[in-house]
């Protein structure tokens, strides 16, 4: 009996392993795919069965067809380009400003205390409150979008950088000192690596927020981009077209999330296991 178990025990792993990689891993993805298909099917059926007026909610197939048509249009890609341009420039400016200010404020106890009340007051102000100002100052130009995006994204990054700089381990810092590392060297080898994961979290959150504000500006103010196209499609009665554009913004959102997670993973491969997300 014992020899039999031994034999099967030895043979099992290799067979199982091959089996597993083909079969077990994809079940999750398959279920996820089934979920998406189920959602699309429900969407298809709701207007077809007359639960909702198809004039207001066209079936999924029509919307997807409209999206595919969009993919062939230059105007669509121009709008996507405008949105992405505002998103990228806004994010870049916000991150640059927040990193510089974050490191300056974070590394001085005095500045940290002195700015605290102001930061806590300015941060929760919703960036959409600036819409009328943006309209007055810039009209429907990209600067309007940028004002909103930068304001919203800036705080996300700044707060994370401040947390990160504060998180620097005193023991690590003092160890570095005893080995004679100077101020710059300590920032390079101790402060920066500690802050990096926080910074990446901030950038990821800011990237999502920046997209929201880019679309908002286009939708409400009318600066060029997908958001404006959506508003135009809606008021022009191109309902399938409007839903197609909404789907497109969702796809862009998913792509941005994936990109950010990818960058985060690349830069923090050494760190992710040590640190879970900080909830602030």
């Amino acid at each position: 009996m014992s020899s039999k178990t031994l034999a099967s025990g030895a043979a099992a792993p290799s067979v199982e392993r091959q089996h597993r990689q083909v079969r077990k891993m994809p079940t999750k993805q398959l279920l996820g795919l089934a979920g998406i298909l189920g959602f699309l099917l429900t969407w298809e059926l709701i207007p077809r069965l007359g639960l909702v007026d198809p004039n207001y909610l066209p079936p999924a197939s029509e919307v997807i067809a409209a999206l595919i048509v969009d993919f062939g249009l230059t105007a669509f890609w121009v709008a996507v380009g405008e949105t992405m341009k505002a998103w990228f420039l806004g994010l870049l400016m916000a991150v640059a400003a927040a990193v510089v200010l974050g490191f300056i404020i974070g590394s001085s106890n005095f500045l940290r205390k002195a700015t605290n009340s102001t930061i806590e007051f300015l941060r929760p102000i919703p960036s959409v409150a600036l819409i009328p100002l943006a309209v007055l100052m810039f009209g429907v130009k990209i600067e309007s979008s940028l004002l909103l995006i930068v304001y919203a994204a800036f705080w996300q990054v700044l707060i994370q950088v401040l947390y990160g700089v504060a998180d620097v381990d005193m023991v690590a810092n003092n160890t570095a000192r005893t080995y004679g590392l100077g101020r710059m060297a300590r920032i390079r080898y101790v402060v920066f690596p500690t802050t990096l994961p926080y910074l990446m979290t901030g950038v990821r959150l800011a990237a999502a927020v920046a997209l929201v504000l880019a679309i908002t500006a286009e939708l409400v103010i009318g600066s060029p981009g997908l958001g404006r196209e959506i508003a135009l499609a809606q008021s022009g009665g191109a309902i399938s077209g409007m839903y197609a554009l909404v789907l497109a913004t969702g796809l862009i959102g998913v792509l941005i999330n994936m990109l950010m997670r990818f960058i985060e993973k690349k830069t923090l491969s050494w760190h992710t296991s040590v640190r879970s997300e900080v909830f602030v």
């Binding site: 792993p13 597993r20 891993m25």
Partner: peptide, 13 residues
């Protein structure tokens, strides 16, 4: 135990 890396026999009998 059934794991991604094959089976692990933790306890035999």
């Amino acid at each position: 135990y059934q794991t991604d890396g094959g089976d692990v026999e933790a306890v035999r009998n």
